[in-house]
Design a protein around this nucleic acid. Structure first.
Lengths: 310, 310
DNA sequence: GTGAAAGCGCTAACAG
DNA sequence: CTGTTAGCGCTTTCAC
C-alpha cells in the first residue's frame, strides 16, 4: 500500500496529492485482511463472555471499548451462553483470525483450552476469580464487601444462610461460595451442603433454586446468590410463593448489574465494578503489546451495596 | 492448505492420516486471515447496535448468533453508543475486514454512510423502521399493537397524550412518534408539539423528559416512550416526584426489553420480538450469500403487552 | 525521495 | 487421486 496512508516514510507533497486524489476517486480503502496477513495481527480484540443479556457484561464491553478505541483497536463481543464448545470455538477463532487480543470470562473452560492461544502468542487477559496458566488476570477483591454483607445479615438476626451457587462443572468451581463459606465461620456460622443449591447463572435457575430452598423443612432465613440475575430469579419466585423479602428471607446478589436497583425492594448486592474491570483488562493488553512478558494480576475491589433486601 | 482440512476434494486414506498426524503434532491451525485474503470474505458477521446495555439488543445478538452458527459464521457485536462516528467506524471496519455480512440498527447514520458497504459488496441488513437504500430491511409492523395501546389508554379516560421521543437528529426522525401521531387522530386526539419531548434512548433522558412533562401547567395523563429504557427512566422520576403510575399518569414503553416485567408496576409495552428480528436478519443474509440480488423487506409483527402502567 | 520485489498462508486452476 | 503454481494486497527491505 502507498506510504501516503501509512505515513511510515516521507512522501513528496506532490505525490501525496496525486495519491489522495486517486483514493478519493476510486473509493479505495485499505484491505486490513492483507495487512493482518502480512503483520500477523489484526486490530480486533475479542471480548468473550458467558451471557450478554447480563448487563454486567454489556458494561464491561462498553468500558473495554472506550479504553481501546484510542489505540485503534476494535472490540467485538462474543456470547458463549456459558457453553464450553462455544467458548472454545471463539478462542480458536481468535487465533485463526490473529486477533490483537482476547479478554475472556471463562465459564466452563479448563486451563488446557487456552493452550492454542498461548502457543499462537495471542495476548489474553482472563477476568475471573482464579488464575489461568500464563494469562494475565483481573480478579475481584470481594473479601471486605462480603464480610460487610455478612455483618448486615447477622445483625438482622439471620443465622441460617443458604446460597444459590453456580453449576458444579463451572470453571474453578464457585469461588464466591468458597469465600462465603470461609467468611461465615468468622461469624460462627457454617453453611451445610444441604443449603447450597447449584444451577446456571440464569433467572430460571435462580427461581428454581429459591423454590427448592423454600420447600425445605428448615428454611434458610438468608440467601446469597451467585449473581444478580440469579437473585432476580429468586425474587420472581418469592413473589409467586408469597415469601416476604426481606421479611421472611434476606437476599444478597452479586455484581450490581443495572437492574439490581430496578426491582422492588431494591436488591442488596456486592458490587463488582464492570467499568474498572474493563479498564484494567485494557491496560494489561496494552502492556503486553508493549512487550511485557511476565504474568500480571490486577485486583479490583468489590463493594457492599446495602439496599432493601436484608 | 491441505485438502484434508477443507474436504474440497477426495484424498487417499493414507495421505489423510499422515496430514492429520502432522496437524496434531505441530498444533497447526488454519490461518483464516490468509483464507479471507484469498477468497475476499471472512466468516465474521458484525452486529452493529446503538446500545448494548439495552437487553433488547443482547437478545437480538443471541438469536442472530444461533441462526448463523450452523453456517460456520461468527457474530461479533459492536456497540456504537448511538454515536455516528462510531457507527461509521464499524461500517468501515466491516468492509476493510471483508466481513461476511453486517446487521445494523442505525441510529444517526444517513443513507450515504452506507455507500462504502454496498460498493464493497458486503451484504448488509438494516433493522430499522425505514428502508435504507439498497439494504435489506427488517422492520416492525407495529400499527395494530400501537392501536391496541391507544385503545386501552383512551378507555382508561386519558386524552392528554405525550411522548418522550428519540433525539431530533436520529436517523429517520422518530417513526414511532409519527405512527403514534397518525393513529391518535383516529381516536380524535392530537399530539401537540409541546407534549413531545426529545432525548437520547437512555434512562437519564427518560427521567429528564418525564420531569419536564410533569413540570407543565397542563400535565399529560399518558406518556408513550421511545423504548423501554426511556420508560424506566420515566418511572425513576415518577417515584422521585411522587407521581402515581398509572394513577396520575399512564406509561407505555416499547420493545419489551427483559426488565419491562421487572419493575413495579410492571411496564405496559409494545413488544418487538428481538428473536424474530435476529432470525429474519440471518435469513436475509443467507439469501444474499446464495446469490439473491433484489432488495427484500421482512416485516416483524409487534404485539401490545398490557401490564400495570395504564 | 521513490521503485521494485519478496513473501505472509491460503485457494483454485491446471497438469499430470 | 496428487503436485505445482499464481496471486489475493499488504509491509518491509534493498537498491537507486
Amino acid at each position: 500500500m502507498s506510504y501516503v496512508l501509512s505515513g511510515k516514510r516521507a512522501v513528496a507533497e506532490e505525490t501525496r496529492r496525486a495519491v489522495e486524489a486517486a483514493i478519493a476517486e476510486l473509493g479505495f480503502s485499505v484491505n486490513t485482511v492483507a495487512r493482518s496477513l502480512r503483520t500477523g495481527r489484526s486490530s480486533i480484540v475479542a471480548l468473550i463472555v458467558p451471557d450478554l443479556s447480563n448487563p454486567f457484561y454489556a458494561q464491561l464491553a462498553a468500558s473495554l471499548q472506550e479504553e481501546l478505541r484510542t489505540l485503534g483497536l476494535h472490540v467485538m463481543v462474543c456470547d458463549t451462553k456459558a457453553d464450553r464448545d462455544e467458548e472454545r470455538a471463539y478462542l480458536r477463532e481468535a487465533v485463526q483470525q490473529r486477533f490483537a487480543g482476547v479478554v475472556i470470562t471463562p465459564f466452563r473452560l479448563v486451563a488446557k483450552d487456552f493452550l492454542p492461544l498461548s502457543e499462537a502468542g495471542v495476548p489474553a487477559v482472563v477476568s475471573a476469580d482464579l488464575p489461568f496458566g500464563e494469562m494475565d488476570l483481573v480478579t475481584p477483591d470481594a473479601r471486605a464487601a462480603m464480610r460487610a454483607a455478612l455483618t448486615e445479615v447477622t445483625r438482622a438476626g439471620r443465622r441460617r444462610i443458604a446460597m444459590i451457587a453456580g453449576p458444579r462443572d463451572a470453571t474453578g468451581g464457585d469461588p464466591r461460595l468458597e469465600l462465603l463459606r470461609a467468611l461465615a465461620v468468622q461469624f460462627g456460622i457454617t453453611l451445610p451442603g444441604r443449603l447450597i443449591v447449584r444451577g446456571e447463572h440464569t433467572r430460571e435457575a435462580g427461581a428454581a433454586g429459591f423454590a427448592y430452598l423454600m420447600g425445605m423443612k428448615h428454611r434458610p432465613d438468608a440467601v446469597f446468590c451467585a449473581n444478580d440475575v440469579v437473585a432476580i430469579g429468586a425474587m420472581d419466585k418469592a413473589e409467586e410463593l408469597g415469601v416476604g423479602i426481606p421479611g421472611d428471607v434476606a437476599l444478597v446478589g452479586h455484581d450490581d448489574a443495572s437492574f439490581a436497583s430496578l426491582v422492588r425492594p431494591r436488591l442488596t448486592t456486592v458490587r463488582y465494578p464492570a467499568a474498572d474491570v474493563g479498564r484494567a483488562a485494557a491496560r494489561l493488553l496494552v502492556e503486553r503489546a508493549d512487550g511485557r512478558v511476565a504474568r500480571r494480576t490486577v485486583r479490583v475491589k468489590a463493594e457492599f451495596i446495602s439496599r432493601g433486601t436484608i
